[in-house]
């Protein structure tokens, strides 16, 4: 089955076997178990569970907030990557190193920190409430928390690509009479777009499932600021395993449809 790159490297059966067994035990069989468990439900029951107003509004909120957070990251992530790669300025190394903080910081810590920061009497929340904007315990707060935890994705995926684009390419374009907008449109965007989409997808996928950083700032008001993972948690607390499973399966399916669409878009863009 294996066509080794070179016949003298040993360990194919061992490593492939171990990889498959481990992956099956920890990831694949338990995930498949969830689908088998869900099969106890008839289609009608499944539909009844996932079409309650509470679930539908959580579905919209989860995917909507994740989409907005990924888009916001698409903008500020690109800005950060651009500035770190292209300019030399005081504090550049610190910014570069701390970009990964949201990956390293436990999400529960991020959650309580953001909630305190943006609560109506918090350090930033007081200015927001002076302006009549409520952040904590609203969908806005959820988007904020999701933007925080997924901040590094876009930066880290486009940073290496940006470093590899030769400056001469832009200079050549400028010398040939292109203005900055044309350089952006014809040189930078085509080179960065695939990596940007990868970062966007990673951020989106992570944001959809995120729990720890969101539940504190969300306030979890039924029908208003409940996210899907929180609803699963509620069902589990009520020992409603079937209900939790139905929502879990629906969430996985919708996620994969989204990821598939983004993947197709990415392939289309690379071809054209």
């Amino acid at each position: 089955m294996a066509r080794s790159v070179s016949p003298v490297i040993p360990g194919f059966n061992l490593t492939l076997g171990y990889t498959l067994v481990y992956l099956s035990l920890i990831v694949l069989i338990p995930l498949a178990g969830m689908l088998v468990y869900a099969a106890q439900l008839s289609w009608q029951d499944f539909y009844r569970i996932i079409s309650t107003p509470q679930v539908v509004s959580a579905l919209k909120l989860s995917f909507g907030a994740a989409l907005v957070a990924a888009l916001v990251n698409g903008v500020i992530g690109t800005l950060l990557a651009w500035v770190i790669v292209r300019y030399r300025f005081p504090g550049r190394k610190i910014i570069d190193a701390l970009i990964d903080l949201p990956f390293a910081l436990p999400t529960a810590v991020a959650g309580i920190a953001l909630t305190t920061l943006y609560a109506p009497k918090g350090l930033l929340g007081q200015y927001a409430s002076d302006m009549g904007i409520k952040v904590a315990f609203t969908p806005f707060g959820i988007v904020l928390a999701l933007t925080f935890v997924t901040l590094p994705f876009v930066v880290r995926t486009i940073q290496p690509v940006l470093e590899d684009i030769p400056r001469e390419l832009e200079e050549a374009a400028t010398c040939l009479g292109a203005n900055s907008f044309q350089v952006l449109r014809h040189v930078l965007i085509p080179a960065l777009l695939p990596a940007w989409l990868t970062g966007f997808t990673l951020a989106f996928a992570r944001a959809v499932g995120e729990y720890g950083s969101v539940i504190f700032i969300a306030g979890n008001m039924p029908g208003k600021t409940e996210i899907l993972p929180f609803l699963i948690m509620v069902k589990l607390d009520q020992y409603d395993y079937l209900g939790a499973t139905a929502i879990g399966v629906m969430m996985l399916v919708v996620s994969f449809v989204f990821l598939l669409l983004i993947n197709l878009l990415q392939r289309y863009l690379i071809k054209h």
Binding site: P30, M34, Y37, L202, G209, G212, P229, M233, G248
Partner: peptide
Amino acid sequence: LPFSVSPIIAGLIYIL
């Protein structure tokens, strides 16, 4: 795959 599965679902599958 685990990167695109919600941590809550990761817990749920072991409960099931």
